[in-house]
């Protein structure tokens, strides 16, 4: 059984005929080649497949592709659209928030969702927002530091804009 999915992925509108039982993660990875979305576990326990749906973090492994009908999906490939890393991605690089890298796309998108909702989160809020994303290298301290740095740089940018 197939149905038509109309969706915006990383800013581009698409229409695809897809099977009813297709998971969002398989649509993104196998259908669109967006393999930045990782599959870590098979049960929504690790957060590696986190993507943004209308700015909210969502586990692509436990969402049907047809459930994002008419909505806006963003994957890690969509963040640095013009090739430059975003401040958040740069912070992950600078603060060594990436070890093996497998959890990184999910971590960055979960953090991105937090920063869109709350541009200046405290350490506790960051830990809360990332508590569903597991890093098997146990690099959580650096990851939290990276998000703090990104939030800090956003704050400085806002302050500079205010001063101008």
């Amino acid at each position: 059984m197939k149905s038509i999915l109309s969706v915006t992925v990383n800013g581009r509108r698409r229409e695809d005929a897809i099977p009813d039982n297709l998971l969002l993660i398989d649509y993104l990875r196998d259908g669109l080649g967006l393999t930045g979305t990782k599959q870590g576990c098979d049960g929504g326990e690790c957060g590696a497949c986190t993507v943004l749906v209308d700015d909210e973090p969502r586990l692509a492994c436990s969402t049907l592709a047809l459930q994002v009908q008419g909505r806006r999906v963003e994957t890690i490939e969509g963040l640095a659209g013009d090739g430059d890393l975003t401040p958040l991605q740069r912070a992950f690089q600078d603060k060594l928030g990436t070890e093996c890298g497998f959890c990184t796309p999910g971590m960055i998108l979960a953090a991105e969702a937090l920063l869109r909702r709350n541009p200046h989160p405290g350490r506790e809020e960051i830990k809360q927002a990332l508590s569903g994303n597991l890093c098997r290298c146990a690099g959580h301290a650096q990851i939290v530091a990276a998000v703090e740095t990104a939030a800090e740089s956003r704050k400085n940018e806002t302050a500079m804009e205010g001063a101008r």
Binding site: M1, S3, P19, N21, L22, D42, L66
Partner: peptide, 12 residues
């Protein structure tokens, strides 16, 4: 690859 069994999806 389809991870899920075949079903028809209804979206009322």
């Amino acid at each position: 690859m389809n991870a899920l069994p075949d079903f028809r999806l209804h979206r009322p």
